[in-house]
Amino acid sequence: MVFKVYYQELMKEVPVREKTKSLYVEAESVREVRTKLADRPYNIEFVTPVQGAFLEYEQKNEDFKVLEIG
């Protein structure tokens, strides 16, 4: 399943909508997504599954790329 992760680039940064970034991760659960990103200095705000029509819409975006994290 593909998950969309909303995050701030710095762990100590206060979440501000204008600075929020997103990325996509392939995983089985939200917990697995957070585990895969644990070594990165991200302040993860929200993780949500992306599927169906929402996934199709996101795939049309030129910046759509699923991270391959082992």
Rank of each mutant, 00 (worst) to 15 (best):
Q51A: 13
M11V: 15
L10E: 14
K36Q: 08
V66I: 10
K65V: 04
E18N: 06
V16M: 01
V50Y: 09
E56G: 13
E58F: 11
K12L: 15
D63N: 12
K65E: 08
V16E: 08
P41D: 15
R34Q: 09
A27H: 03
F46T: 10
E18L: 06
F46Y: 14
M11N: 14
V14L: 14
E68I: 02
L10Y: 12
Q59S: 10
Q8K: 08
K60Y: 11
Q59K: 15
D63W: 02
F64T: 02
L23Y: 00
R17G: 00
T20W: 02
E32T: 08
P49N: 08
R17D: 07
Y24S: 01
K19G: 03
E58S: 10
D63C: 01
M11D: 14
S22T: 04
K12E: 15
V16T: 08
D39Q: 10
E18D: 07
K12D: 15
V47E: 06
Y57N: 09
A27E: 03
L55I: 09
D39T: 11
D39C: 04
E56N: 15
V66N: 01
Y6V: 04
S22V: 01
P49I: 06
F54D: 10
Y7T: 05
P15N: 10
G70I: 10
G52F: 12
G52A: 11
A27V: 02
Y57V: 03
R40C: 04
Y6P: 04
T20F: 04
